[in-house]
């Protein structure tokens, strides 16, 4: 079964509790990639370049979202186009916008159940609403019922003073206990608040990409959030996956931690086995 097909087997539960036995050799999964075009930053939709860079970087699967359309359906169709071309290399993430709440849940059902997307991406910075704005709650209620992961940035320029990542995701985790939260870029910098959130909350993960390659960021996240709570991501094609994966490959952490960050943790979040098949999940409440 392909990775994209794996996403069709709803209901399923991503984000099983971290820990357990040392990982078996796992595929390398890039948890943070985009599809679509953004001319301002030279982002195009060249699938062949995507695959060439993935091959050179050693990436087996790239998780794609398209967040650049006001119409989520158009963005999700862009991702679906990539999935159709190479279902063996891409995993889809469905975009949902709170600006059109009447469309959000039907579009998520289409994206996950028909197009095979494996998790949900929201983009609070650019849509102008923080992730804990009630406008998202219908989206998260649907995600919670499915037990899917959500990826988003954790802080925003318009946050009021005193906002903390730990506080924000503690409240969200209480309200939506079956959602796994992947905090984009939160392991791309030394961020004590993000690490605290991942350490304190059982379903919060930190993702590694950043344009700055902050010294010691991956090491800090692994030490303070735990090696089970960090996911490799590249932000490709905004950034080059070879450069982003290099931060993990050359980090001063153990080989076991590197393998977890590069893929084993993502498998758990996505509910996949090492051969990228869906792992049966216990029934909710078991």
């Amino acid at each position: 079964m392909t990775a994209s097909a794996a996403g069709r087997s709803a209901p399923r539960r991503g984000g099983a509790a971290a820990g357990g036995a040392p990982p078996e050799p796992a595929p390398v999964i890039d948890f943070h990639c985009h599809a679509g075009r953004w001319g301002r930053y030279w982002v195009d939709d060249a699938c062949d370049r995507y695959l060439r860079v993935m091959d050179a970087a050693g990436i087996d699967r790239a998780c794609l979202n398209c967040i650049w359309h006001g119409d989520a359906r158009r963005g999700n169709d862009v991702v679906a186009g990539f999935l159709r071309q190479r279902p063996d290399r891409f995993i889809g993430a469905a975009f949902a916008t709170p600006h059109y709440p009447e469309e959000a849940v039907p579009e998520l059902e289409r994206a996950v159940d028909q197009l095979g997307m494996a998790y949900v991406k929201v983009y609070p910075d650019y849509v102008g609403r923080p992730v804990d704005d009630p406008a998202y709650f219908p989206i998260f209620e649907w995600v919670n019922a499915r037990g899917l992961p959500v990826m988003c940035h954790a802080t925003y320029p318009f946050d009021p003073p005193g906002t903390t990542i730990t506080g924000r995701f503690t409240a969200l985790s209480r309200r939506f206990p079956h959602v796994t939260w992947v905090l984009a870029h939160a392991a791309g910098r030394v961020d004590a608040d993000a690490a605290r959130a991942a350490r304190c909350l059982p379903k919060v993960y930190l993702e590694t990409c950043s344009s700055g390659t902050a010294l010691g960021a991956v090491e800090y996240a692994v030490e303070h959030a735990g090696e089970d709570r960090v996911l490799f991501g590249s932000d490709m094609p905004l950034m080059d996956a070879r450069q982003q994966i290099a931060k993990v490959a050359t980090a001063a952490i153990s080989p076991q931690a590197k393998r977890k960050v590069l893929g084993a943790n993502a498998l758990r979040v996505l509910g996949l086995s090492t051969d990228l098949r869906p792992v049966p999940r216990p029934a909710r409440g078991a």
């Binding site: 700055g212 390659t213 902050a214 010294l215 010691g216 080059d240 070879r242 450069q243 290099a246 931060k247």
Partner: peptide, 19 residues
């Protein structure tokens, strides 16, 4: 590299993967 804000090794790793 932009050290010490960034480490030195990642960019070298990247260059070795550029064909």
């Amino acid at each position: 590299s932009r050290f010490p804000d960034s480490p030195m090794a990642p960019q070298l790793y990247h260059l070795h993967r550029c064909g």
